[in-house]
Amino acid sequence: MTIALVTGANQGLGLALVAGLARRLGPQDTVYLTGRNPDRVAAAVAGLPPAPAQVRGEVFDVADPGAAERLAEKLGAVDIVFGNAVMRVGPGDDPAAIIDEYAEVNNFGTTRLLRAFAPRLPDGGRLIVVASSFGTLHHLAPVLHPRFDAVGGLDAVDAAVARWRDEVRDGRARAGAWPGFVNIPSKIAQVAAVRALAAERRDDDRRRGILIAAACPGMINTPTSGLWWDVSGAPSPDEAAGALLDLALGEVRAEHYGELVRFGDALPWKP
């Protein structure tokens, strides 16, 4: 019996991951579709087509500091975890005005998920954080690389995120070397969190067949992405989910462990 969980699964890629898992798993398996709004969670579950695996809705707000641990205690060992919850921003949003909630959901929500579910992974488990190709140091000024490179554990990543958040909020980031697009440092911090956790667990996880990784689904044709780019020719969420599902359900490859994986290849962390 396989248990899977997807955060941020009411719509878009998260919903596609739930549907794909339900198709690929069997009748004895369960996929948890999670989101913070109970009505939207229920509607998303009800709208899914029939599939072999059972899909259950679960209310889970990653911005709630205690929610990840409570859910992990309730579910116990979860074989496949996709961290997909994200607060989206548009070109007209003021970074200083949204940065607190943005970091809370995208970054602290990610590290809480890692802390809660990684220790409970069974042999052969998979914990995958959905990030993007922006999540490498190639997109950050070299002077800022030490903030996220080879940091010592998830607490250090959280501290780096809090420092960046504060600098965005009070305007120092705008005057410094930070990119104006807050998605870039946020994604880098997500990948840094995966790398920091993996560095602590690598030998034991490899022995037990566990994969901890970040994953880039590539450009997706969604309304939010369309605010920033021309996505008319981009894959749909269902199409984009395929490579991530392959990563979660296929054989573990050593070169993927602790890395950002895109279409089956690990992307270089450093320039």
Rank of each mutant, 00 (worst) to 15 (best):
L245H: 00
T111Q: 02
N221H: 09
A44I: 07
P38H: 04
P237C: 10
D203S: 15
H256R: 08
D123S: 12
I210H: 01
P52I: 02
A118L: 09
I220N: 07
G124V: 12
V157N: 09
D205T: 02
D61V: 05
A192I: 00
A16Q: 05
R253N: 10
L211R: 03
L48M: 13
R40W: 03
K74G: 01
A116D: 03
A150Y: 05
E104A: 15
D93R: 07
L114T: 14
A116M: 05
P91G: 09
P27W: 00
S133I: 08
G135C: 03
V143P: 00
K270T: 15
D204P: 00
P38K: 07
V62F: 09
R172M: 06
A46M: 04
D39E: 15
G180H: 00
T222H: 09
R172F: 03
W164F: 15
I220C: 10
A198M: 10
D230K: 01
H145Q: 13
T30Y: 11
A77L: 04
P95Q: 10
V161Y: 04
P50D: 15
W178Y: 15
V157A: 11
T111Y: 06
G135E: 03
E251R: 15
G233A: 14
R207Q: 15
G12N: 01
A22D: 08
R24G: 11
P50M: 14
A131T: 12
P268Y: 02
A16V: 06
L144M: 11
K270C: 12
